[in-house]
Design a protein around this nucleic acid. Structure first.
Lengths: 202, 202
DNA sequence: GCCATTGTATAGCGATCGTTATGAAACCTG
DNA sequence: CAGGTTTCATAACGATCGCTATACAATGGC
């Protein structure tokens, strides 16, 4: 209806946020300076603070953006699978591809972006840890669901199994950061699926 | 023979280094400031620079110290085991204990201390990555050895298997940092051993 | 005691950190 | 055009970064 008064923003906010995601993904929260962020976005500090608040809020928004772009594959694959076993299997193979995909940093941003922090930014650390624990809870829920339907033995250790696959996922991320290629990560995924509990039904 | 001239050092160099290990272990290389290091050591900056050179060299020395103290268990356990399977098994259980041991930060310093780095300290990142790859090479060597003696099938994928266990170890470290306790990590270890290739001999 | 040597504390170096005050520039409404 | 509003670039804020020049304290050898 009414045109917004004032000078219009001179840059694409979402495009700038996509650059920010790549910066935080590659160097992590604290090791990424506001100067490098503004350089990557092609803007000056006041524009960043006017559009995003501060570095802390910008990181949260970058994580949210990461979750609905690069990170969306994980959730999609898990919910699309017909059972827990195939959910975990397709997840691991999808991550083997995603973690080594060219065009962005290797590994998972949620796992790597806030590992080394001063005491001043433990809040950021906790934010990512919460996302990791939520992901683990999703995996655990699918496992529990299959134990109630009988697809998995009733005495299946859902906590242990979920923690195991969470660990495998995090290990694959670290291996990807260290330069391991997709084919090797897929062999890791294949090995990781060999310890799936013997089911009593299909 | 001749007594060293000059004022003697007023602090225990090794004790100070042990404090440094804990600081770098907890916060990582870049997130640990010289000010926090000197505070932990109970000395002033000039004493640090006189005794250790600079922050970069101090970190290398701290990593070396970590390797012969906390990190020594891994190598000991691997070489002491009679075969590759029991080497990996005892390694995983030893790490489940070590990563959650009270009195020091959780997880592995070699895995966590240089994840988030600016471009200025990629050298440090590479130093730790080299140690991780050397560890993986040790695991791979034990696996290859068992394929030649027939304890493991001749067509065993040594690279894939070594990468898999390296990933499990790194995942266990991340889980420990996220607060998982020893018992749960041991269940992860047990699961991780279930995919060991079927041997043809004892 | 005196000298040479080495370690320590004080204080501050230049650089960079995250953040912001200031004023000019670019828009909409009349 | 003028008035109101928002964004922009310039420049700088105080704080902290890794590091060090300077001066003093503490030792062994003479």
């Amino acid at each position: 209806m009414s045109g917004t008064p004032g000078r219009p923003r001179g840059f694409d906010r979402e495009a700038a946020l996509d650059r920010v995601v790549l910066e935080f993904w590659q160097h992590g929260y604290e090791a990424t300076s506001v100067a490098s962020l503004t350089a990557a976005m092609g803007i000056k500090p006041p524009s960043l603070y006017a559009a995003f608040g501060d570095k802390r809020k910008l990181f949260s928004e970058a994580i949210r953006r990461y979750g609905v772009t690069y990170g969306a594959v994980a959730g999609d694959v898990i919910t699309a699978a017909p059972d827990a076993r195939r959910a975990m299997e397709s997840l691991l193979y999808a991550l083997a591809a995603a973690y080594t995909e060219p065009g962005h940093p290797p590994g998972c941003m949620v796992i790597t972006a806030a590992v080394n922090c001063t005491s001043a930014s433990e809040e950021v650390k906790a934010e990512l840890r919460a996302i990791r624990e939520a992901s683990k809870a999703v995996m655990r829920a699918r496992i529990v669901a299959d134990t109630t339907t009988g697809r998995l033995p009733a005495d299946t250790d859902a906590d242990g199994l979920a923690t195991y696959y969470a660990a495998v996922v995090q290990g694959m991320s670290t291996q990807a950061v260290d330069g391991v290629d997709r084919a090797t990560l897929e062999r890791v995924a294949a090995l990781a699926m060999r310890c799936w509990p013997q089911g009593t039904a299909t």
